[in-house]
């Protein structure tokens, strides 16, 4: 079980809980604004872009090359960007704070 906080574009934090699966799927289940997950989580659509809190970036780790290539062309990307369909929920993510990009 991990509690994850999403901060949406109107700056309202939403705390949700998940056990397994991807962070994107958790966000979609909970109707987090700005996370669409159109491609279902195969890293094709870039509609699940989040910024990880700087001090927590090590928890989720670096993006893969394929994911970095997607982010490279996203105007809102920064060094703490991730596509959250590529982050699997584990207990280690408890307390993670993600800001929805865009």
């Amino acid at each position: 079980m991990a509690k994850i906080t999403f901060i949406t574009q109107n700056n309202i934090p939403v705390v949700v809980e998940g056990e397994a699966g991807s962070v994107m799927a958790l966000a979609v289940e909970n109707n987090i604004a700005g996370i669409d997950g159109d491609c279902g989580g195969v890293c094709s659509c870039a509609t699940c872009h989040v910024h990880v809190a700087q001090e927590q970036f090590a928890l989720v780790g670096e993006a893969s090359e394929i994911e970095k290539d997607m982010l490279e062309l996203d105007d809102d990307a920064n060094e703490y960007s991730r596509l959250c369909c590529q982050i699997d929920i584990t207990p280690a993510l408890d307390g993670l704070v993600l800001t929805v990009a865009g």
């Binding site: 159109d38 195969v42 890293c43 094709s44 659509c45 394929i66």
Partner: peptide
Amino acid sequence: DRKLNPHVSFGFSHHNCLGATHAR
């Protein structure tokens, strides 16, 4: 069950396919 599949069948960027949700 290809896990990483960054295909461009629905295009890419601004002009990505408007009908993609319907097609899927």
